[in-house]
Each structure stands twice: as structure tokens, then as C-alpha cells.
Design a protein around this nucleic acid. Structure first.
Lengths: 204, 204, 204, 204
DNA sequence: GTATAATCGAGACGGTACGTCACGTCTTTAG
DNA sequence: CTAAAGACGTGACGTACCGTCTCGATTATAC
């Protein structure tokens, strides 16, 4: 009774309002795209007052971002067995699957992210970083198992792997399993013929 | 001599107005970002009527896109001599250099591109495609010269190379020569150890 | 008691905004004329957002009309004593007095009214009709009192009396008491000499 | 050849352009109303450049006014025989007939006239005055013939007669022969009963 | 109980930018 | 020098959102 009750007086917030807004935002942005959706529409869809939204988020961008971060959260797992190549295939395949539904919306997001550095930072931390770490882990494990060259530049590899799907995503091209496999394949093999010259050229 | 005179009647368009608008748009968007710049401001900066802008472009997005497309146009051909790797390094280096100044603005652009499929298509055709072809050519030439494996999946290679800079660009990370080199290096070498197994696995 | 609370939810309209807009409109239109006054100016003069204006009226015409309708509203009374002729004199005199200040603005109004049938209808209902009824009442009372011929065509009489001031008003001529008296006089006497022939000519 | 040729050099004005513009203006204003017709439309309808219009008139109002003044010119003189009452009936009937077609357009005109004093003056001189004189003449002749009381206030009578049709015209009501007759009748008879008291009341 | 206080939906508020329209002027080539 | 054509700068229009504010009503704790 003493320290327990720190709740402020007054009517407590409606716990259903937040989730309802997130869901509404997701639905509408997927349906019509970020720009075409107004704060008004989201609040109406959630059957909530507009002020209730502003009480919880800074504005549209803030809300919509969270709506999709939440949805992308479940990109965990991937601690599957199999070779490193198989694991990367699996990872990329899953990412592609998610982006098939959310793609346009995610595009909308990264769009808005461009106009706001803070937004971009949050986006990186909560959306990009986790995925980068998964890939980094897979690759690192691969080097330990001898499937990945142990002088591999992991950061760059991660960058390329992700770029390989961000790029077509942003251009509105379809992401399918076949592309995923081709990307992973290429990443493993490289395009060069002169494999043995590597050590010498690497010097400088 | 008869065929010479195809000019339409009426006062000809002011040839300085278009470039002035493009330049003004570039300047302002670089300075303040896409969202913060209004059509009014651009017209005023260009010392031109607002209607003159609408006579040449659909709206702000259209104009600003072209402003940066034009600036990127001079990504000249890279018919430099040297090995394929050197050429790719050079290409990527140049792209990075351009993006160092225009990066934020380009980000603004691709942002807006997301909300409009038509816009995205134009963006692809005029900004992405030309660069993709340059890289494709370089690689193709490389296969002929034996520097690139002749079973290389060129499309995927191009995708990866571009993704490799779009990705950090959109995340607001710095693009420098060192990254360019690392990307090209990795693309050549691949990350896999089992180079000899390639032909067998490639079968399916 | 339950029926008392019919107020709609949401923030109530600012009761000062409407009158402020009307007053601003009146002031500006009198000062500069209808055409020279923009919606922007009126809103600014009233220290009110432009949208607040559009929330209450269809547009400039609508607002300005009401601004002058309101000002003319106080043309009620006239339930003065006296003979019918004195009452008509009083009525017409009052109308003239009002039009002396508002004349130019009213002209602006009826001007715009011509281009919009809806506008014209409103104008009739709220500006013309009430006055017509006042006059009709005065005349009807006059017939009961034996001051007006009981076979008088009241509608036509009303039309003539009003036309008698609309006409000079629209032509920009001054309206004074003397004119008012002359009109009423003429209306009473008629211009014909052969008063007794009336019944016979009336037949056809 | 010497003194004869005072014509200025260069291409001569196209004499058909002016009339074509007037006709086009009349047609369009009758069809759509003054406000809805743009200078552009008139020029296009007349198959003439826009500048050609501005070379001959100040602007739309100027042109349209002349277009209808010209059309009204043929309000021929009504030197018909018959009693004064018959003549006034005939005159008013003709005016009403003209206004049946041109009414809406004339309304548009007087509308615009309100915003421009010069315009209004021209309108009065060329449209109103001639008709006023016709009526004045008829009445004057009537007094000579003993059909009109010789102490009649002619100016006021003229004003009332014209107001009697301007008023319903501006309110968009139909003008027909029956109304014309009722107006003339009322004007002759007056509405008062006490005809014999006239001379005494007239004193003051 | 009765304050006090924060929440809720609703909607008006002052702003700002948008894209359209018409204006009257200016600038071409052709006659 | 005029003609047709049409681009030019200007400025008002009405619409759409933005983020804030102000209501009455509701729902909790605190006295």
C-alpha cells in the first residue's frame, strides 16, 4: 500500500486504444500507403479520438513505424540446423516472405525515415540491427565450421546481403525464394576467377 | 529547309526557367530537405511564377526528382582502362562521391518515390537502369577477358553491387572509397571456401 | 429537463468568430468593394483562420451577403401609427437611409447574386421577401381602413414600390426622403385622369 | 496616291474580328452567364487571338457590355397610335419580350456594372437613358391629350415604371404581358381612394 | 460523499501547402 | 504593324491535413 500505489489519479488510459491504433495504422498503410493515410483516418479506423493518438505518439510517422516494427519483431528464430549456406537461404527466404506482404508499407516507412534523422536512427536500431546480427552470427559460426573463409570481411558481407534485398525492395521488384538462393550462391562463390591471387592483392 | 521549321507558334518557353527551377530545387532540397521545401519557395528562388513550374512538371516530387536525376546524369561512362576490378572500384568510387553531396537529397527522393508507383518507375528507368547497365557491361567485358567467371549470374551481381551502396545510403551511413573497395573485393572472392564444389552444386 | 442538452459534442464553435467575420466582411466590402476583397483579407481582418470561414459559409459571396442581410435586418418596426401614406413614407425613408451607407455594397451583392441562382434565391428570401411583406401588410391594413382602394392589385403595388428604389439604387443615383415621398404620392394618386372609367376598362 | 494613302503601314486590322468577338461574347454570356465565361473562351469562340480582344477593349466587362448594348439598340421607337395607356402597354410589352431572351445576360451586366462606376455610367447613358426618354415622351404626350394628369411628376413616374421591371428582372422572376398590363393599370389608377383630396394634400 | 484529476470522443481552431484557374502582359513567327 | 498562339508573373480560389485547443462526459484516486 505504501510504495505500491504510485498510479497517478484520474482516469487511467484505455489499454485497448494503443493496440487498436497500431493495428489500424498497419491495415491502412498496407492498403493505401503511408502518404495516403491521414492521422484522421487512422483514429477513425481505430474508433478512437485523434488526441488519444497524439497522447501516445509524436505523430503519424512515429505511430506507423512502431506498427511495423512490432510486426517485424518475429523475425527471430533461424537457429535452424544445416550448413551455413542453408541457414542464410532460410533467413533470406523468411525475410522475403515477410516483405511480400509488408513490402510496400516498409517502403513507405523507409521513405519517411529519410526526412527525419531520429526516425532513421530508431529504424536502424530496431529493424536493421537485429537482422544484421543474425546474419553476422550465422557467418561467424560458418567460419568456425570451416564453411566460410576465415578472412571474410563480415561487416561488408552483411551489408551486401541486406543491400541485396533492400535494393530490389525499394525498386518495387518481386522478392522470391529463387532470388534469395541466387544471392546466397553468389555471395559464396564470388564472381572472380583468380581465387589464388587473393592473398597477394589483399596486401595493399 | 521546309522541314526545318517545326516550331510551334506562340511565345516560346523560357529556356532559362526550367534549369533555374531545377537548380533552385536542388539547392533548397539539399539545404532544407524535401519536406521542408514548398513549391512556392522553389518558384521564388528561381524567380519564376509558380504556374511556370506546373507547366513543366506534375508537381514538387516530379521536379525535384529530375533535379537530382540530372545531377546524377554525369556519372560518365567509366570506359577507363584497367582490370575489371579496377573498373568496378572506379565506378563505385564515383557513385559514392556523388552520393556524398547528394545523399540526403537522394534519400528524400527515394522516399517520395515510395508513395507513387509511376514515380518509382521513372526513378528506375532514369536513375537505376543506366547505372545497372554500366556495371553489367563491365562484368560482361570481364568474362570475355577471363577475369570474371563465365557462369556468373550477372543480374544478381548487379543487384548486389547496387544494394551494397543503397543499403548504407538509406541508413545514413557514410560512403567512402574504402567501403567501395571492400565491396568489390568481396564480390570477387565470395565468402565460401569450397570453390571446387561449385560446379557440382550449381547443377540443380 | 432532459431535452435541454442538445449540444453536439466536440469543441463548440467560437461564437465570436462568426460575428467577427461578418463585421470584417462589412467593413472591407464597404471600404474596397466586393471584388477587391479576398477571403484571405476577411479572415485576417477578423483574426480568424480561413477554414473557420469556410466552416460557416460556402464562400465569400455567401458570407458577404449575410453580412449585409444582418445589417438590414433592423428594418422591422414600422408598426407606427398614422395614415397608410405616412407609414409607407416612413418605411421607404428608412430603407433609403440604410441604403445610403450600404448602397454600394448592396449593389456589389446583387451583382454577384446574378451569377448564382442559389445566391439569388437566398437574397430574395432573406432580403426582399421580408420587406415585401411589410409593405403588403401596410397596404392591406390600408384597405381595411378605407385609405386604399379595395380592388388594389397588392402584388403589383409592392413590386412597383420596391422597383422604385432598386432601380435608382442600381444606377448609382442618390436616394433621399424627397424621392421617397414623391414615390408614395404617385403610387397613391396614379397618373391617370379618368378615374371613373376604371371599372369599364377593367373588364377585359 | 499622295494624300490618299494615310493608312498606317503594316497589316491592317481584321474588320471581322471585332464583330466576331461581340457575337461570341453575346452567345456565351447568354448561354453560361457572365462570370462563367472567360476571356479565353470568348476569343476561342470567335476564333481570334486573345490579344486581339485586348487591342479593342479594356477587358471582358467592356466587351460584353458593348455586345449587349448593341443588341438592345433596336428597341425601336414605339411611335404607335392609340391611347397613352395602350402605348405604355406596348412599350413595356416589348421591353419584356427582349428581356425574356437577354434577361439573364443583362442581369450579368448590371451585376458587373456595380463594381465599376465608369461602366455604370456608360450603361446608364446607352441602355437606360434612351428607354427613359421614350417613356417620358409618351407621358408628356398623354398630358397634352388629357389622358394624364397634368401635375404628374414625370421623373418619378418614369422611375417607377422602369423599377417595376428591373426589380423582378433582377430577382429572376418571369416577365410577361400580364404583368406589364397590371403595372400600367396601377400606375394610371394609383392605389388611393381619396382622389378628390389630392389638390389639398398636394399643397405641402 | 465529494473533490480533484486525467482520460475519453468529438470537433473547432489557426496555419500552411497544395494544385487549379483566370487574369492581363509579353514574346515569338507569319502575313 | 497586326494576327494567332501560347508562355509569363501574379494572385485568389477552395481543399486537405497538420498539431493544438476546448468542450461535456467518464472514471479513477484522495480526502
Amino acid at each position: 500500500m505504501t510504495a505500491v500505489d504510485l498510479r497517478s489519479p484520474g482516469r487511467p488510459r484505455d489499454d485497448t486504444a494503443g493496440p487498436a491504433l497500431l493495428a489500424a495504422a498497419r491495415r491502412l498503410v498496407i492498403a493505401h500507403g503511408y502518404e495516403a493515410v491521414s492521422v484522421q483516418m487512422i483514429a477513425a479506423e481505430a474508433q478512437v479520438g485523434r488526441q488519444t493518438l497524439y497522447r501516445r505518439w509524436q505523430g503519424k510517422a512515429d505511430l506507423v513505424l512502431e506498427a511495423f516494427l512490432a510486426s517485424a519483431q518475429n523475425a527471430e528464430l533461424c537457429h535452424a540446423d544445416g550448413t551455413t549456406e542453408e541457414k542464410l537461404n532460410l533467413f533470406l527466404g523468411q525475410v522475403f516472405k515477410n516483405l511480400t506482404t509488408d513490402g510496400p508499407a516498409i517502403r513507405s516507412l523507409i521513405a519517411s525515415a529519410q526526412s527525419d534523422p531520429d526516425f532513421r536512427e530508431i529504424f536502424k536500431q530496431r529493424f536493421v540491427q537485429p537482422r544484421a546480427e543474425i546474419v553476422a552470427n550465422i557467418i561467424q559460426l560458418g567460419t568456425a565450421r570451416g564453411e566460410i573463409r576465415n578472412d571474410t570481411d563480415i561487416d561488408t558481407a552483411v551489408t551486401m546481403l541486406h543491400g541485396a534485398f533492400w535494393y530490389p525492395l525499394l525498386l518495387g521488384e518481386t522478392l522470391n525464394y529463387e532470388l534469395a538462393h541466387r544471392i546466397v550462391r553468389l555471395l559464396f562463390e564470388g564472381i572472380g576467377t583468380a581465387k589464388e591471387t587473393r592473398n597477394s592483392t589483399r596486401k595493399n
